[in-house]
Amino acid sequence: MTGRIKDCFSTAKTASRKVLVPFVTAGDPDPEWTVSIMHALVAAGADLIELGIPFSDPMADGPVIQLASERAIERHVDLGNVLKMVEEFRRADTTTPVVLMGYMNPIVRFGSERFPSAATRAGVDGLLLVDCPLEDRGGLGVAMEDAGLDGICMVAPTTSRSRVETITSNASGFIYYVSFKGITGAGQLDSQGLSDPVNQIREFSTLPVAVGFGIKNAEMAVAVAEHADAVVIGSALVQVLAAAATEKAACAMAASLVAPVRESLDNMKSGVCPGQTEKT
């Protein structure tokens, strides 16, 4: 686990704080705005940022994130640009972890072997590949380990118990639990149903658990955070940003979506969530 992700979760744990993870597609709606949006998200209460790598064929994404990818590609945003954005973000923010999320082919084209070190040099902390299970990482997996880039693994509602064990024993950073069978932005999330699968992950691993897919507002975030250490808000945020006409508006919109979620998470009464044993 790299310093920033580890520190982020341990600080949060000490403070009984839920980790809030917004997702934005790099370069959407305007490549010039992404870094400012990232700062605005942090200022509004985000703890960790997931930055989407635009891809032409995002099989696991719904229309909202797919269109965001298309907009970014139209503006010629490639993986090199994404790393530059993180580099620029790091000039003003050295603590907030950044996890890149995307698909395999842009990484292959950049160079699977050279990407992880380039990413960590730029200040990236983790990589979540939607279409690349652990077993298929090949040389990329080795290079990630060498570079100290966390490989964030997904666990889905369909993942078998024995596979959960395999995944968790190879994962680093945190575990991303996909809250329902479906694509990003879809579905009616059933937060009640999260208890068993999240507990199963915790049986095998002490890594923090983030839950994502379908969390749209503060109320849903709170319901999810009853079970999880971190909540991811993706499509809802991307959808809002798509309508922004200026950089300033985009930052304000991002903040006004994230701030109430932050506030609701901080107002959660329990202060302890399953799997967390320390109280402060």
Binding site: T158, T159, I167
Partner: peptide, 22 residues
């Protein structure tokens, strides 16, 4: 066993589908 012809093939899908492929 993992679905490769030499360097080619594999199962590059989201985790949700792994069970269905199994």
């Amino acid at each position: 066993d993992t679905g490769y012809f030499g360097d080619f093939g594999g199962r590059f899908v989201s985790e949700t589908l792994i069970h269905a492929l199994d």
